[in-house]
Amino acid sequence: MADFQAAGVRPVAISVDPPEVSRDLANKAGYTFPILSDPDASVIRSYHLLHPGAGVDGHDIARPAEFLVDSSKIVRWTNFTEDIRVRARANEMLAAARQLR
């Protein structure tokens, strides 16, 4: 987390989980970055990341994806996994963050 701060990057997590679930996650994992709730998946949809019916009980959820977005809201780096078991590692995201000019 301090490394991201040093790189001038603010991590933000987004899922369909309600705020209570995110709060539990933040407490358990010790996350200090914002965890945002998109319960009706409207933002996930606007980013074209909807994975219909893939959640428990057939909920629509987000496909895993990471974006580095600069101050003018332009995408500078992306990562779309092809396998839900494989996610971006913190050091990969940090490397992308440090390459930003």
Binding site: R10, R63, E66, V69
Partner: peptide, 16 residues
């Protein structure tokens, strides 16, 4: 904190 140079948006599947 000062304005960040970028935000890292992490979309994840969540727990339900």
């Amino acid at each position: 904190a000062p304005a960040p140079r970028a935000v890292l948006l992490i979309f994840y599947r969540g727990y339900w």
